[in-house]
Design a protein around this nucleic acid. Structure first.
Lengths: 342, 342
DNA sequence: CTGAAAGCGCTTACAG
DNA sequence: CTGAAAGCGCTTACAG
């Protein structure tokens, strides 16, 4: 048996019964001590006796047994349609931060762009999560999820009736962006949208289009296209559309995400389109690279980490049985002007 | 009771006993059918009877109960020091892809740059994971993890004796990079490293430095600095070091990750350092934005998705009790030359 | 303050 | 092919 084999053999499990035997108490007492529920229920003597045994044996409460007995696990499930979006990495960090070490974060990811189905939900609930965090869900998904326990929605505008939520005020940034472009002298713009029918994309687009028309920046019907959230896909779509747009006098392109904008920047370089002189480009998200792209990208900053942090906080409250002071929170977005439109 | 309240009430759980009662069989039979272990053990009649009851009630095997009985859960834990690194988003996608729907991916994240401790390990194991995927671990961590069940290491060069692993041949790309810079006429370079003592960073640096000295590209001792994996931190460190480097005739900077390189590019723009004319910049990773940065970034391409995919495959084999044909796999890295060094 | 016991939901020898 | 029963490890009324 070589090292590899040995490592794949399981270690013998230390159980509460073993601790109890060593400390000379019952497993009930061990449970009380291990969970810190000793207040007025366990003698000081037994407490220290059990603590010693726990330390000596390296006992850790088995979360499977514990979850079964309690009826709920310590797992928090984060359901998101798109982990590969770097925006989400920061959301995850924020969630972790506020959830703390007592909850385990389980990531449920569907295939790129797909939204999770009722069937997926059932499987998730079979894990008896302590709580659920759902990003950018569809109404249908939330119907399927009914009565699932503590639940907080992230970035789910318009779905406030289903659960407490933390949203981003993307419309505000979108309007700022429209005004910025109009003020810079643009009169004809185009829009590159995400394909997923996510509500936030719709909101971004509609707020932008509305404010644009209000300030004399026109966006023709045929000048709104959509692609998956992928640099290459956006580049290809832009390559396809640009000749038309150019003929029609388009001098500004707004993208639903920075990732789309990177694709446009990339293709523009290939096609020799000068940015921002010939074409202004802007996005949404303010990913960490937008400050360094070529040129640096004007974008609507969305607070990813605070979004995750706040959602985690709210969920924690729910899991602890508290009533939320403010069940619906909206975080601000702000326009960051950089080289791509300057 | 308004909608929100109702949603936070748990749905009544459908158990195997309820299915058994409805189908007129024992829970043992329900278990066999639900797990597809009917082969020669359950009559066709009972199979269809149970299937009908399962469908009618919407029964899903409770994974807590199941895990306790089996002694192992369906959870696979991915331990990684840094989710916020976009490189990892792709690794995760790859893992998900190869693991398939029967395993749940649990993310264990330590605070930025911190490596997980023995104590964290115990908590993880309390979840009775079906398997563990550990990225860029320390030897100490692997010692703590001993005998933890199926385990596959990702990006853990030099630690092959602990477990099956999937590594990246970063040295090859590092050497290509050194030769590319030397061939472009550079004679003095600097290096911006990551601060975490991760083995892959050491490998990148050493392979580069070795090959550099071999081809007449000198890197002075004081010209190797290190920062956390963060655009801002790298920018600040570069700002600090550049005057010195410039005086010493440095004309090329190699960064341990693309993220570091973005910081250098950013600061270079601020400081008016012309790239690549005055200073060539290169990184490692080939993040999706490196093709669009300003200028586009020369970098050593590391296959993130295949890394995750392969590790997931290997782990799946282990969890199914198979012997791996090839316990140690190394994926190639390749230099991608772009504008920042051209 | 303490422990015996029931129960969480499932799986798996075992006897038939 | 089938079901009664033991057991996975824990928590929590309950009786004392």
């Amino acid at each position: 048996m070589d090292t590899l084999d040995r490592r794949n053999a399981r270690a013998p499990r230390v159980t509460a019964a073993m601790v109890a035997a060593r400390a000379g108490v019952s497993t009930a007492t061990v449970s009380l001590v291990a969970n810190g529920k000793t207040q007025g229920r366990v003698s000081d003597d037994n407490i220290s006796r059990v603590r010693t045994a726990i330390a000596e044996l390296g006992y850790v409460v088995d979360s499977i047994g514990s979850s079964l007995a309690r009826g709920v696990s310590s797992i928090v499930i984060l359901v998101t349609p798109d982990v590969s979006n770097p925006f989400f990495a920061n959301v995850i960090s924020g969630v972790r931060e506020s959830l703390g070490p007592e909850y385990q974060l389980l990531l449920s990811v569907t295939d790129a762009g797909e939204s999770p189905q009722a069937d997926d939900v059932r499987k998730l609930l079979a894990l008896r999560p302590a709580g659920l965090l759902v990003g950018a869900p569809s109404a249908q998904f939330l119907e399927d999820l009914s009565a699932a326990g503590p639940l907080v929605l992230l970035d789910a505008p318009g779905l406030e009736s289903y659960a407490p939520s933390v949203n981003l005020d993307v419309a505000q940034g979108a309007r700022e962006l429209a005004r910025h472009l109009a003020a810079s002298g643009h009169t004809h713009a185009a829009y590159v949208d995400g394909v997923t029918g996510t509500a936030t994309f719709q909101l971004r687009r509609e707020a932008f289009l509305e404010e644009a028309s209000r300030c004399g920046l026109s966006v023709a019907d045929g000048h709104v296209i959509s692609t998956s959230i992928d640099v290459g896909a956006a580049a290809a779509a832009f390559a396809d559309a640009w000749p038309d747009w150019q003929r029609a006098g388009v001098t500004a392109v707004v993208c639903g995400t920075d990732t789309h904008a990177y694709g446009v920047l990339q293709e523009a370089r290939v096609a020799g389109v000068r940015i921002p002189d010939e074409l202004a480009v802007a996005g949404f998200d303010d990913l960490p690279y937008s400050a360094t792209s070529n040129p640096s990208l004007t974008t609507v900053h969305l607070p990813a980490t605070p979004l995750g942090r706040k959602a985690g906080e709210q969920l924690k409250g729910l899991m602890e049985g508290l009533a939320l002071d403010e069940p619906h929170v909206t975080l601000e977005s702000t326009l960051v002007v950089r080289g791509s439109t300057a």
